[in-house]
């Protein structure tokens, strides 16, 4: 069975010309870790809010565990867990009080589903008497995850759980998601960080309310249309500029310590021609290697082609 089914969802907010969601359709399977990858304003939060029955789509149909988001909203609210983008717990209540409160709201208790949250809860247990507002970013995130899991939801919706969180905490968080997935919970997670895409089973790349591509991260990168190269020299800033002026260049983007480029046509001599060109422009220590495209390369390519 498909846990989440969206077909032709449209949503435009009042007073806005541009649609927040434009004909969005996809499905996620049972027990899948599905990632929604896109920048702020791409429509990720709108999509999550429609699926969690918080807002209504203008048109189209959405189902969670076979239940319609418009008509069966009461049923859906019983079986999903939701972690909004902003930290949304009571800052003036302690860790324990927050957990107990949400447990009662969902008609359960901390004990009942302790197994599910045990691994995460153990990490925040030493601070259980501390007010949620005084926890560090990473701890808050763990508490929020515990609260969203406390009723053993069938589907877990996590809206940008790692935004503003440092690289170390992010890694930890993805580790937790993996463990949850193994317990059979379907997870729909959104993120603006392209490097997190590889940690998902399948991903959808979303931009301006439109899904640009849906597949496994690996297949998406395989579908990159051109051979991609990484270039490096001693003057990276100037290199970017010079590369863009090279006649054979199709795309050129900075990628950390390399620039990723693709050529208009694939001729054998292009590589050497480029090297000669760069030497003439006073670059030294020039490196040019073929490189496998990442999700971010694909995202940029898809954005450019739209």
């Amino acid at each position: 069975m498909k846990d989440v089914v969206l077909s032709n969802i449209h949503k435009t907010y009042k007073g806005r010309d541009i649609p927040a969601l434009n004909d969005v359709s996809f499905e996620t399977g049972e027990g899948e870790l599905f990632g929604l990858i896109g920048p702020d304003g791409a429509g990720k939060t709108s999509l999550f809010r429609i699926l969690t029955t918080l807002i209504l789509p203008d048109s189209g149909c959405a189902k969670v565990c076979g239940k319609d988001v418009v008509n069966d909203y009461k049923e859906i609210r019983k079986i999903v867990g939701y972690m909004p983008g902003k930290f949304s717990l009571y800052q003036d209540l302690s860790v324990e009080e927050n957990l107990n409160f949400f447990a009662t709201v969902f008609n359960t208790s901390l004990k009942k589903n302790y197994d599910l949250i045990k691994d995460i809860y153990i990490q925040i247990e030493p601070f259980k008497k501390r007010r949620a507002g005084q926890l560090s970013g990473g701890m808050k995130q763990k508490l929020a995850l515990c609260c969203a899991l406390i009723h053993k939801p069938k589907v877990l919706f996590l809206d940008e759980p790692t935004t503003g969180v440092d690289a170390v905490s992010r890694k930890e968080f993805w580790g937790m998601l993996k463990a949850l997935k193994e317990q059979g919970i379907s997870i729909l997670v959104s993120t603006p960080y392209m490097d997190e895409a590889d940690l998902c089973d399948r991903i959808a790349l979303i931009q301006n309310g439109k899904i640009m591509s849906i597949d496994t991260p690996h297949s998406i990168t395989l579908n990159y249309p051109d051979p991609l190269y990484a270039v490096q020299s001693d003057q990276m800033g100037k290199l970017l500029h010079d590369l863009r002026n090279f006649r054979e260049i199709k795309s050129c983007n900075a990628f950390g310590d390399y620039h990723h480029i693709s050529f208009v046509s694939e001729r054998k001599e292009t590589g050497n021609e480029l090297k000669d060109y760069l030497l003439k422009k006073d670059h030294s220590n020039i490196k040019l290697n073929a490189v496998a495209p990442g999700i971010e390369d694909c995202f940029i390519q898809l954005m450019d082609s739209e």
């Binding site: 969690t52 029955t53 609210r77 969902f106």
Partner: peptide
């Protein structure tokens, strides 16, 4: 404002 209403709405209560 704090977003807690969002969570409470997505609950059986």
């Amino acid at each position: 404002e704090r977003g807690t209403m969002e969570i409470l709405l997505v609950s059986p209560f």
